[in-house]
């Protein structure tokens, strides 16, 4: 299946990402060895200059991975028709065991890259580059994750063989080999309880952090938890309400035109809120330097407020779509 244009585009995107990240990784190693802010030597100046390049590369990687995440989902949806039994993207991802891992790794990369960019933003606000070592240590984690994501994605694509007529003499080919197009979902009531309690706790945690100026780390942990819980909730009940079908659990079809693109409306705030929360959580434990205190004092409340607001929006949207739907799941 490697000659499919969208698949080629995805492979190209991953290749470019790795080509750019590899030297960045090597640079990280160099920097961790030689970084000395107090020195005015030519090497230090060169290192400082190169940090600009790495930051730009990471920004590029983030943007490209975001685009390729969307493209992967839509390609999977488009390809579903090629596999017997696959009704939509879920089916395509199930064709071989590398499908969903490829998706999850892309998501992980998205969160890691956004955390790195946030840490970089904070680091740049203080005159003594207090987070630089941590930042480049983080980069040394981003790189293997990106490599793994690329490899898994390639394996997934290599394992995609369309169920097409290959022989002019063969008759009804492979009746048995169908792909499971269903995603197991939790019982709706449980999922709702889980969703509202976790997201509710997150929002409360955020409000508390804003009021008392403490506990931002707890909020970050909660927002990290909120992401998988919300996705599970989409699968377990929100998708059913939106499609008005008791068995259509697919979290990807929401993004299609026939459902009014509501998927974007739901996913954008969720992704943004979780990314912000996680980024803050990754940065805070290391932001102890005195020079960062005024910076964090300014940035933390803003980030917490934005993330809290977005989580609240999520809850409102979930409730709205569930309420408005013609499907009755409870009672």
């Amino acid at each position: 299946m490697l000659f499919h244009p969208a698949i080629m585009a995805l492979l190209l995107a991953d290749a470019l990402t790795l080509i750019l990240l590899l030297p960045a990784g090597l640079f990280a190693l160099r920097l961790l060895r030689h970084w000395d802010l107090n020195s005015g030597s030519a090497r230090q100046i060169r290192l400082e200059r190169q940090t600009y390049l790495v930051a730009t590369v990471l920004g590029f990687v983030f943007a490209v991975q975001l685009l390729s995440l969307l493209l992967l989902v839509f390609t999977a949806d488009r390809l579903a028709v090629q596999f017997v039994g696959a009704m939509c993207a879920v089916g395509t991802f199930n064709v071989n065991p590398f499908g969903f891992p490829a998706l999850f790794l892309k998501l992980a990369l998205f969160f890691l890259a956004s955390a790195w960019l946030f840490m970089n933003h904070v680091d740049n606000r203080a005159p003594d580059y207090p987070l630089t070592r941590v930042k480049y240590g983080l980069l040394l984690i981003v790189l293997p994750v990106a490599a793994l994501a690329a490899v898994v994605q390639v394996r997934y694509f290599l394992g995609l063989r369309a169920d097409v007529i290959t022989s002019c003499c063969g008759s009804l080919f492979s009746g048995e080999k169908t792909v499971t197009a269903e995603l197991a979902g939790m019982p709706p009531l449980q999922a709702m309880i889980g969703f509202y309690s976790v997201l509710g706790a997150t929002v409360l945690g955020g409000l508390f952090a804003l009021w008392r100026r403490r506990g931002a780390l707890v909020f970050s942990a909660l927002s990290a938890l909120a992401f998988p819980v919300a996705i599970a909730a989409v699968i377990a009940f929100l998708s059913l309400y939106i499609y008005e079908h008791p068995h259509h659990h697919c979290p990807f079809c929401l993004l299609k035109a026939e459902y009014g693109y509501v998927g974007y409306l739901v996913y954008l705030p969720l992704f943004a809120a979780s990314a912000l929360g996680v980024a803050l959580g990754v940065t805070l434990p290391f932001a102890r330097a005195a020079t960062l205190a005024p910076v964090m004092a300014r940035i933390t409340p803003r980030v917490v407020a934005m993330a809290t607001g977005l989580f609240m929006l999520c809850m409102v949207l979930f409730t709205w779509f569930s309420w408005r739907s013609n499907l009755v799941l409870l009672g």
């Binding site: 802010l37 020195s39 005015g40 030597s41 030519a42 100046i45 005159p127 003594d128 580059y129």
Partner: peptide
């Protein structure tokens, strides 16, 4: 430019090891 060695102070603030942005 930054000095290779030594200290530069402007209006009482040490600028010798300030990164480029600052």
């Amino acid at each position: 430019a930054r000095p290779t060695e030594g200290r530069v102070r402007v209006a009482g603030q040490d600028v010798s090891s300030l990164p480029e942005r600052f």
